[in-house]
Design a protein around this nucleic acid. Structure first.
Lengths: 205, 205
DNA sequence: CCTTTCAGATACTGATCAGTATTCGGATAC
DNA sequence: GTATCCGAATACTGATCAGTATCTGAAAGG
């Protein structure tokens, strides 16, 4: 285990960069964005402040890099795969809801949810950050029907952007309530809410 | 205007306490909970740090007092009146949605929304705060049908607590998205979402 | 009036932290 | 093997801030 690895400079640098990103996610979530210190992030990664400033321009850039790293990471890829598989909409909704609850229960997700919300608030006060975060949260809009709204449901009658914004609101809002009070807002409730939104429309034009 | 008012000690103290609460709300929203300094809150109120520590035990208590003040204040009273007037559920939903959008657009609401979300996150890390905030956000549960879910709607078939949690998730989540990106998530979308949730159920048992 | 009281002002302390300047040591290049 | 380079460690600076200890002036009380 403790075999001193012999790495090239480049390898070592990349390795350290990743360790810093992971440490930052953890520490930012634990302490809050404003409460987290660069020193603590570095220590969590087994490095020092020098490493942080050598790899990132400052706290703010570190923050955004963590978001990018995560959003492009495995978790998001998985959700995307689920969302854009050619699957039937009905079971897709069910599966997505199950997946959501499962991840909400898993601890690893908590850190990210906390950081996301905090970064949103932070972005509200900082136009430069806001712009970048909006691009991350609302990627270039698709057209047509939202993958999570089965044809025939009321949700499916909305333009993509609207359905998307509604679902994202529910997603982020419920994540927050689950974090705050899982006993009042259990993760399974997401499936219920999603069910309501995607229920077949009672059709009188 | 600048007539030096002659007040009793008690009057002056109460007056200053209120000024501090209002200043705190503004500063906490502008700078963030961790970023706001007691000195700045005091200055915003035209007072000094001494006044804050004379009226509140510390930063944390000030924070919670602001929440209580606001939640019991005029705005909330108004919403409650709306919610519990004996009105017909259908127009109640409409009116509530209109009210929601109107307040989301008004600047005064922004500060509170930001503070609420931040305090939620803060509470997540601090059990004592969490407990108090949960009591504020989820007041002693009512029974039966939720006032915002018209009889016959799918939402009305859920227990009060579940309907409540779903609506609160949507509320807080959309507030956050409206704050972050009103151009992607306009306040009117709340009415749309609420309409979906409270649409009459397509009834096959 | 003159004394007491106390809300709030002022002054201070200790701690934390972002960012910078400098140094160090191992990898790289020759 | 020696010189160079550069990523990270270390040391330092200036600023901020929560909380405390002390002081002050005006209202309360006689």
């Amino acid at each position: 285990m403790a075999v001193a690895e012999r790495l090239t400079r480049q390898e070592r640098r990349e390795h350290n960069r990743l360790k810093l990103l992971e440490a930052a996610e953890k520490v930012f979530a634990e302490r809050g964005i404003q409460g987290a210190s660069i020193d603590e992030v570095a220590a969590e990664a087994g490095l020092t402040k020098g490493a942080v400033y050598s790899n990132f321009a400052g706290k703010e850039e570190l923050l955004l890099e963590v978001m990018r790293y995560r959003l492009h990471g495995e978790a998001q890829a998985q959700a995307d795969r689920l969302l854009h598989s050619g699957r039937d909409s009905g079971e897709l909704v069910e599966e997505f809801a199950r997946y959501w609850a499962e991840r909400a229960r898993a601890g690893d997700q908590e850190a990210f949810a906390q950081m996301t919300v905090e970064l949103m608030i932070h972005a509200t006060r900082n136009p430069a950050v806001r712009e970048q975060l909006v691009d991350l949260v609302f990627p270039p809009a698709s057209e047509g029907r939202h993958p999570l709204s089965p044809p025939g449901s009321a949700l499916a009658e909305l333009p993509y952007a609207q359905a998307d914004a509604i679902l994202k609101s529910l997603d982020i809002g419920m994540r927050l309530l689950v974090l705050l009070a899982p006993e009042r807002c259990p993760p399974e409730l997401f499936a219920t809410a999603l069910g309501l939104l995607t229920a077949p429309r009672s059709d009188h034009p």
